[in-house]
C-alpha cells in the first residue's frame, strides 16, 4: 500500500507534464484546427532554453522562466506564420504535413546547435525561496523538490489559463473562435491576433513543461517525439479541443503508465496508452470527456 501511493505520486508528476503539453496541443487544434506535430519540439526548445538561461546566462530561476517564455513566444509566432497563416484556407493535411516538416527542421537545428549528447538542467532548488522550504516526505511518499515543482507549476499555469479563457477579452475571443470562426470574425474578434496568441500559449505551456522536466530528465534533439505522441494520446482521450478533458486525461495517462510499470511490466508502459487510444477511437471517438456533436 505504501508503494501504491508512491506509484500514484510518480504518475501525477509525469502526468502533469503530459497535461501541460497536451493542453497547448488541444487549444491549437480546437481553436485553429491545426494538428501540430511539431508540438513536441516546443517542449524540446523549452528544455534547451532553460539550460541556456540557467547554465550559460546564469540567470536566477524566475528570470530563467521569463527567458523560456520569451523564447516560446518567438517560436509560437514563427510556428503560426509557418503552419497557420499561409495554410488556413487550404486542406487540413497541408498544415499537418508542414508541421511534420517543421518538427524535422527544429530537431536538426537542435542537433547542429546543441549537439547530439543528452543535457540536463542543474536546478539548485535550495536557492528557490518558497520551493526549498517545502517538505519532500509526505507519509510514505517521497518526492524531491524538482519533481514536486512540476505538479505545482502545472496547477498554477492551468489555473491562469482558465482565468484568462474565462474572464478576459482575449479569452472570450479564443473561445468564440473555437465555436465558429466566421461568426467570431463578424463579432469583431481579430482572428489573426487570436491565432498568434493561441500558438504562443501552446508553445509557452509546452516550453515550460520542457524546462521543468529538464531538471528531472534529460533533453536531447529528438526528445519531443515521444512527448508529442503522448500528448496526442491525451488529446484524443480527453476529446479533441477539450481543455478540461486534456487535463484529466493527462493525469490519468501518467497514473496508468506508472501503475503499469509497477504491477505489470515496465516494457508495457508505453503500450498501454496507445491501446487506450485505439479503444477510445473505436468505441467513443469523441473522447472520454467530449460531447458528440452532429455537424450540419
Amino acid at each position: 500500500m505504501d508503494l501504491f501511493l508512491q506509484y500514484m505520486a510518480n504518475g501525477v508528476v509525469i502526468g502533469s507534464t503530459y497535461v501541460l503539453v497536451a493542453v497547448g496541443l488541444t487549444l491549437i487544434f480546437g481553436i485553429l484546427g491545426v494538428v501540430n506535430f511539431a508540438h513536441g519540439e516546443f517542449y524540446m526548445i523549452g528544455g534547451y532554453a532553460g539550460i541556456v538561461a540557467i547554465t550559460v546566462l546564469k540567470l536566477p530561476v524566475l528570470p530563467a522562466i521569463a527567458f523560456v517564455l520569451l523564447v516560446a513566444a518567438v517560436v509560437g509566432i514563427a510556428a503560426e506564420a509557418i503552419l497557420h497563416k499561409p495554410m488556413k484556407n487550404h486542406d487540413a493535411t497541408s498544415s499537418i504535413i508542414s508541421s511534420f516538416g517543421l518538427a524535422v527542421a527544429l530537431q536538426n537545428a537542435a542537433l547542429v546547435v546543441m549537439g547530439p549528447q543528452p543535457q540536463r538542467l542543474n536546478l539548485d532548488v535550495s536557492k528557490i525561496p518558497v520551493l526549498s522550504s517545502l517538505p519532500t516526505d509526505f507519509g510514505p511518499v517521497f518526492l524531491p523538490q524538482q519533481r514536486l515543482l512540476i505538479p505545482i507549476a502545472t496547477v498554477l499555469l492551468i489555473a491562469i489559463l482558465y482565468v484568462v479563457l474565462r474572464y478576459t477579452w482575449t479569452g472570450r475571443g479564443l473561445r468564440a473562435m473555437a465555436q465558429h470562426a466566421t461568426v467570431a470574425r463578424l463579432c469583431g474578434v481579430r482572428v489573426e491576433r487570436v491565432a498568434i496568441v493561441t500558438f504562443i500559449t501552446g508553445a509557452a505551456l509546452a516550453g515550460t513543461a520542457g524546462m521543468l522536466m529538464s531538471s528531472v530528465f534529460f533533453v536531447y534533439p529528438i526528445v519531443g517525439n515521444m512527448i508529442a505522441l503522448k500528448a496526442f494520446t491525451v488529446v484524443i482521450l480527453g476529446g479533441m479541443g477539450n481543455v478540461a478533458g486534456a487535463a484529466v486525461a493527462g493525469l490519468l495517462l501518467g497514473i496508468t503508465e506508472s501503475l503499469t510499470s509497477a504491477y505489470i511490466s515496465n516494457a508495457m508502459r508505453d503500450v498501454v496508452g496507445f491501446v487506450f487510444v485505439i479503444l477510445v477511437l473505436l468505441f467513443r471517438p469523441q473522447g472520454l470527456f467530449g460531447k458528440a456533436v452532429e455537424r450540419s
Binding site: L3, Q6, Y7, N10, G11, V13, I14, M213, F217, F218, I222, V223, M226, E257, S258, L259, S261, A262, S265, N266, A267, D270
Partner: peptide
C-alpha cells in the same frame, strides 16, 4: 529483469518496485 524502450525518460515506478 526489467526492460525499457531506449530513450525512455521516467524510471521512477520501475525503480520504486526494484527497491522493494
Amino acid at each position: 529483469t526489467d526492460s525499457y524502450n531506449a530513450g525512455e525518460q521516467d524510471f521512477s515506478s520501475m525503480l520504486t518496485k526494484l527497491r522493494s
